[in-house]
Simulated assay, not measured.
Amino acid sequence: HNHTKAIILNTPNNPTGKVFTRAELELIRDLCVEFNVLAITDEIYEHILYDNAKHISIASLDGMRDRTVTINGLSKTYSVTGWRVGWTAAAPNITSAIRKVHDFLTVGAPAPLQEAGAAALGMPSEYYQKLAEGYRARRDRLIPALLKAGFKCFPPRGAYYVMTDIKAFGFADDVAFTRYLVREIGVAAVPGSSFYNDPRDGAQQVRFAFCKRDETLDEAARRLGKLRLKR
């Protein structure tokens, strides 16, 4: 028996940078329709795309308008992560329940920040093109440094993170490696195991973020050059 009531879909994805294709989303759509499942989507990185990747909201596919809860916000596209202003779009019967819960949990985001967000949504298309190009340049600045240092990289097609494989360094797991990175190398990364249902699946992976100034990325590259591969 199928007991699944909802799935969560994050595209573009954190931490992998995966951008789901139309064919992949149509397959997910078919399963949602077949089993009467709700799709809850996190599309916060929708404008941060590379290599001609296209963001497609699954709610736009036939049969998904009334069975999708689309979640988005200002944090990533407008670089205001501390504001915590976002929104959901869903069928009226779903948003009615969401509003009731939201009212008891947070009441609402600060009104001035909502006003600023409404203004930001009117930005011209050139803004989004420049945003994506800026992050693409930073991605292409960091990945060569990671490769040179000995990491295996999984280049992202969206968002601003790079997942890497750390087997070449010979550490027991990702937590031990990231502690070493901070204490001895002076670079912070996120243990890959924190993103997995079974931490063992990510025990030889770490995630780097490249939403930084060029000089910060260059300094990180210099410090990572001190890493040594296992013999």
Rank of each mutant, 00 (worst) to 15 (best):
H3N: 10
T4R: 01
K5D: 07
K5L: 13
A6V: 04
I7P: 11
I7N: 04
I7T: 05
L9E: 08
N14L: 13
P15A: 09
P15D: 14
P15R: 02
F20I: 00
I28E: 04
R29S: 06
E34Q: 11
N36S: 12
L38S: 07
A39Q: 04
E46L: 06
I48H: 05
A53V: 04
S57P: 08
A59T: 07
L61R: 03
D66S: 14
V69K: 01
I71Y: 13
I71N: 11
G73Y: 02
L74K: 01
Y78I: 08
S79G: 15
A91Q: 11
S96W: 15
I98G: 02
I98M: 04
R99K: 13
D103Y: 07
L105S: 08
L105I: 15
T106H: 12
P110W: 13
P110N: 13
A111E: 09
P112R: 08
P112H: 08
P112G: 03
G117F: 07
A118T: 10
A119N: 07
L121C: 08
L121K: 13
E126Y: 12
E126L: 12
Y127H: 05
Y127V: 00
K130W: 06
Y135G: 05
R136Q: 13
A137I: 08
R138T: 08
D140K: 05
R141F: 01
R141V: 04
L147T: 10
K148Y: 07
A149L: 09
G150R: 04
G150T: 11
F154V: 15
P155M: 13
P155G: 02
R157P: 04
R157F: 06
R157T: 03
A159L: 03
V162Y: 03
M163T: 15
I166F: 05
I166E: 00
I166L: 07
K167Q: 14
A168H: 06
A172H: 04
D173A: 03
D174R: 14
A176H: 11
A176W: 06
R179C: 04
V187R: 12
G192I: 01
F195M: 06
Y196G: 04
N197F: 11
G202D: 05
A203P: 01
R207F: 01
R207V: 15
F208D: 13
F210R: 12
K212P: 01
R213F: 11
T216S: 15
D218P: 02
A221P: 07
R223F: 10
K226T: 14
K226G: 05
L227D: 06
R228T: 15
R228M: 10
